[in-house]
Computed example of a mutant assay.
Amino acid sequence: MRRRRTEALAELLREMEQDRAKAELQGRPGPDPDEAYEAVPVAPAPAPPPEPAPPRLEESETEELPPVRMGENFSADSGPGPARERPSTRRAGGVDLRRAAVVVGVAAAALIGFGAALLVPGGDASDEAQTGTPTPTPTATTPSAAPPPQQAVDPDGPGTLREGDTGPEVAELQQRLRKIPNVYDNGSTSGTYDSTLTEAVARFQLWYGIRGDETGVYGNDTRLDLESRTQA
């Protein structure tokens, strides 16, 4: 970018200030900045010429379009003229011919199938009479043995213990519960799932937030939680 040369402009402004100061001292108005310009009259722009009016057609020069007939077909393949009637829309006595043909065909097919079904047993009997060999009859098969009934699966998981059960698993449960503080203190380890053990299991489930098993039932969720807190 070039640096502007403002010395000439500053000199011009300085001279204008000096002229204005001299005029004020002499009591006359300063130089009018508009005196340096010359008024030039501006001629008005010429108006555009008027557009010529469209030629008026006489009534004899106009052409009237032919009337359109209802039902004419103007498609490319048919050409001008009345619309051709489709074969599917032709009716005889108010009944569609195509529908009637379909009904007749279905009825004929049903009759032919019925007649063929009647002829099949007779053909088998004639073949048996000609060959002299009887047709083998299907023999009744003995029913196979019924599968053994499946045992009901406990909803709390396999190996679930509840009140009334006995055995070494119940004794192991009692020993593990005695290791939990204030749950089964000094409880019996006889191996019998009694009401006292049921209350101890329910207390353990309540205190440790076990919700997967029934209250007082030693299921899978209660077993996993108790085994994780006690040693074997």
Rank of each mutant, 00 (worst) to 15 (best):
M1G: 13
M1N: 06
R4F: 10
R4C: 08
T6F: 07
E7K: 15
A8L: 15
E11F: 15
L13E: 11
E15G: 12
Q18W: 09
D19I: 08
R20I: 01
R20C: 01
A21S: 06
K22Y: 11
E24W: 07
E24I: 10
G27N: 03
G27D: 05
P29D: 07
G30E: 07
G30C: 06
P33N: 02
P33Q: 04
A36C: 02
E38A: 15
E38M: 02
A39H: 05
V42S: 05
A45G: 02
A47I: 06
P48F: 01
P50V: 04
T62H: 12
P66H: 01
P67R: 15
V68C: 08
N73T: 04
N73K: 04
S78L: 05
S78T: 12
G79Q: 04
P80L: 13
A83N: 07
R84K: 15
R86C: 03
T89S: 15
V95E: 10
D96I: 06
L97V: 12
A100M: 13
A101K: 05
V102M: 12
V104K: 14
V106T: 09
L111D: 03
G115Q: 11
A117I: 06
A117E: 04
L119I: 04
P121E: 05
P121I: 10
P121F: 07
D124A: 15
S126T: 13
S126C: 08
Q130L: 13
G132W: 00
T133W: 00
P134T: 09
P134S: 10
P136F: 02
P136I: 00
P136T: 03
T139Q: 12
A140Y: 07
A140E: 11
T141P: 00
T142P: 06
T142D: 09
T142H: 01
S144K: 13
P147L: 07
Q150E: 13
Q150P: 03
Q150G: 08
D154Y: 01
P155I: 04
P158G: 01
E163M: 09
E163Q: 14
T166P: 00
E169H: 01
E172N: 10
L173W: 03
Q174C: 00
R178V: 05
R178Q: 10
P181S: 11
N186A: 14
G187M: 02
S188F: 00
S188A: 13
S190M: 05
T192W: 08
D194N: 15
L197E: 00
T198A: 09
A200Q: 04
A202N: 09
F204N: 02
L206R: 14
W207T: 14
Y208I: 10
R211Y: 08
R211P: 02
G212V: 07
G212P: 03
G212L: 07
T215I: 10
G216D: 11
V217C: 01
G219A: 05
N220Y: 11
R223V: 00
L224E: 08
E227N: 12
E227A: 14
R229K: 15
T230C: 13
Q231S: 15
